[in-house]
Every structure is written in structure tokens, then in C-alpha cells.
Write a protein that binds this DNA or RNA. Structure first.
Lengths: 216, 216
DNA sequence: GAACTAACTGTACGATCGGACGTATTGTTT
DNA sequence: AAACAATACGTCCGATCGTACAGTTAGTTC
């Protein structure tokens, strides 16, 4: 595999071939995310992808080597998009409750957007791979762990700053928030628009109620 | 389609052919549920199903007419299993909080059981079909609505009996419980056993905290 | 017993899948 | 200029998919 071999020791003199390949891989992976968000990573087909992008099936095959590698590249591309659309913008908000609310709001906007007809890539594909051991499942599981850890970390900051109850169980509340967001993603696909309000109300309750989510 | 044409007006004189067909359909649909719980309703293949059960591919085809009909039959079979494994046993508990806890405990047992390697059929397949309009999506969405409605109804009974806060928002809490259960289903697939405790703690918090989940 | 119906089999078709070549093109290195 | 490396293409393969169709077997109805 020749993955991301760009940017060598002497910057400026990058290999034009690798650069071109990286660009192609990127474009393919991005489109793969869109397709897989709606139809799933399994239904993803190399031939269909090539047809959509107007390139040859063999080209895609040569760039990724195998379908599993293509799936992994899609997971990675989705991860980067999530980083850029949710995590990075929310970092502008102050740590603690404010950033937590920003994360949730960015997540809602990210999932609600008509740009992503299939909703959250991770949610759509994790339940497809959760019973199928392999590198794809591992990658998706890692994303889930990271996301919940991000929420938990912000919850701990909020608790430390006295913005929430001091005895708040960060991991448990993070688990709840993620659960509600995933459920909201599905509900939105089914046409339930009221679910966004529900998410906000749940978040309010979790952050304000000193007893809720606390390990007693 | 000759769906469930058994049990005519004069009971006792059932058509043996239809009875046999119904039995075959049942057996196939049951196995389809097992397969689809792990690999999804899309990955379900008529040929594979026939091979597993030792019957001819054409036989399956003739019994269901199309793959979509087979998928719908699987959804129906899963619904009946869920009814028998979760809803019906929980009805032994007293209405209100007791039955609510019974429902959740039965759900956990149902999902944790090694008999169901793919976990909850609905959870596994809804996220696969939520972006794909059609009768299969509608059937799965109906199951979800019914399940949340069952939870909400029990919550209302609990509130009316004074077992929880009177101003508890039944629909919102039902949404939360379902969300947490679905997340737990996925977490269990990923090998996280602690999630069962998390579910119980969340349920405790939701039922005891008067403020949590209330519309204020 | 004859006509009919439903369950089931066997075979075949067109489409699509992932993957395995061999080859041409383009860019890099020596 | 020569050797090499990476992208990209065209073609072919075996496997599997859903479905259609003709035919056989078993049970019902007249």
C-alpha cells in the first residue's frame, strides 16, 4: 500500500505522481462517504463508484487494492469531515457547557443538512458492522470511542468549573448524549422533525438536573 | 400473494397445502431474521437462505414472490419474536414503574442472549433502511413507533399512579429510553459489557429524578 | 376420476460483483 | 537516455445475485 506517502523530508519537491494519486484517492473516498451514508459500506461497489466519477473500475481498484481498503478510506474521510464540520467549529466556544452545547448544535446541523442525505456516516454504518469483526468495525468503533470521550472530557470540564453538578458521571452522561443523538439521526431520516427539540430538551435536563446521570 | 390464507370459516377443515406453505414460510422467515440480524436485510439472499435450510432456491422464490416480500416477512417474524420475548413476559409485572423495569430487563436479556448474535433485529436494520423509502422502511418505522408508544403508555401510568413526577414528559422519556437501549445494543456488539449497568443507572435517574425529562 | 390449485424443483438468463491480469501513460531517479 | 515507479485503462474470470419459466408432486373440489 502506498498510503499518503506525500510530503517527504525535503518539502517542496513532492512526487507529482503520488500527489495526483492522493488527490484521486481523496475524491473517490469523499464520494464513497456520500454513497455509503445512504446505502451502507457493504453496498458500496467499486464499479458504481467508478461510474459516478467517470473513471475506470480498474483505476479505483488499483488505487485502493481491495474493497476493504476502500471502506477504510471512506471511514477515514468521514472522520475528517466530522472533524471539520463538528469538532473544529465547536472549539470556538468556551470550554465546558458552552462548548458542549456547541458540539451538539453542530452535530444537529451536520446531520440535518440536506448535504448529507444519509445522515451521520458513523451511525449509518456502525450498526451494519457491529456484528462483523474486522478492521472496518474497529475503525468505526474507534470513532465512537473518541466521540464519547470528547463529550465526557467537556462534561468533566463543566463539572470542574461548577457549571453542572460536581458529582456528575461524565462517561454516563456522554453515553446518554451520544445515544440520543444517534436516535435523533435515525428519527430525522424517518421524517420526524420534532426530534431536534427533543434533543435540546434532553440536553437541558442532563446539564441542569443535579441528580440525573449522577452515580448515587 | 396468498398470505396466511389458513384458518377458514369452518375451522378444523384447513387446506393442508396452505398449512404446509404457511409452515415453510414461517421456517424461512425465522431463519431470515437470524441472518438479517447479523448481516442485514439487504445482504439477505434467497439462494443462501435456501442452502441453509436445504431447500431449493426456486421454492423460496415461489413462496415469497420477491425479495422484498421476504424482507417484509422477516420483519413480521422479528416483530412476533419481540412480542413473545419482551412485551408479553413483561405484562406479568404490575403496570407502571414495575412493568417499565420489566420491559427494559426483558429487552436487555433479549439483546444480550447468545441466541441472537446480531442483537436487536429492528436496530440492526432500521439504520440500514432509514434512508431508503419503501414498505420495509415503513414496517420497521412502525415497529419503532409502537415500541416507543408502549414505553410512553407505561410511563403515563406510572405518573398517574404517583410513582414518578406528575409532570413527566412521557414521550420524551420514552424516546430517551429507546435511544439508550439502541446504543446499548450496539455497545454490546462491540464487546462492552458495562453498558448494561449504564442502562440501569440511566433508567433509575430518569424514573427517580423529578426534573429530568420534564417539560419545563 | 377429472379439473384445479398450491407447494416445490431444475434450469437458465442477464446483471453485477470483487479481483486478476497485461499494458499504456506519465513522472522520477540515476 | 535508460531504468524505474505510480497512476490509469481494458479485458476477462468465477461467483453470486434476483427473477422467469416449464415441469412435477401433493392435496382439494367438483
Amino acid at each position: 500500500m502506498s498510503e499518503q506517502r506525500v510530503a517527504p523530508a525535503d518539502a517542496g519537491a513532492v512526487d507529482g505522481r503520488l500527489l495526483r494519486g492522493a488527490r484521486s484517492r481523496r475524491a473517490i473516498a469523499r464520494h464513497a462517504v456520500d454513497v455509503a451514508s445512504v446505502e451502507g459500506l457493504t453496498a458500496l461497489s467499486i464499479g458504481r463508484l467508478a461510474g459516478d466519477l467517470g473513471i475506470s473500475k480498474s483505476g479505483v481498484q488499483a488505487l485502493f487494492g481491495s474493497k476493504e481498503n476502500l471502506q477504510l478510506a471512506a471511514v477515514e474521510a468521514a472522520r475528517e469531515t466530522f472533524l471539520a464540520e463538528v469538532l473544529r467549529p465547536a472549539r470556538a466556544a468556551a470550554p465546558g457547557v458552552a462548548r458542549l452545547r456547541a458540539l451538539v448544535e453542530r452535530w444537529i446541523a451536520y446531520v440535518e443538512s440536506p448535504l448529507y442525505p444519509g445522515g451521520c456516516f458513523r451511525v449509518a454504518n456502525l450498526s451494519e458492522f457491529d456484528s462483523r469483526p474486522g478492521p472496518v468495525r474497529d475503525a468505526l468503533a474507534r470513532d465512537t470511542r473518541d466521540w464519547q470521550a470528547t463529550l465526557a472530557a467537556e462534561l468533566r470540564r463543566a463539572a470542574a468549573a461548577g457549571e453542572t453538578a460536581a458529582d456528575l458521571d461524565a462517561e454516563l452522561v456522554a453515553f446518554q448524549i451520544d445515544a440520543v443523538l444517534c436516535a435523533a439521526n435515525t428519527a430525522l431520516r424517518l421524517g420526524d422533525d420534532q426530534v431536534v427539540d427533543k434533543v435540546r430538551r434532553v440536553l437541558d435536563a442532563l446539564l441542569s438536573a443535579p441528580a440525573a446521570g449522577a452515580a448515587r
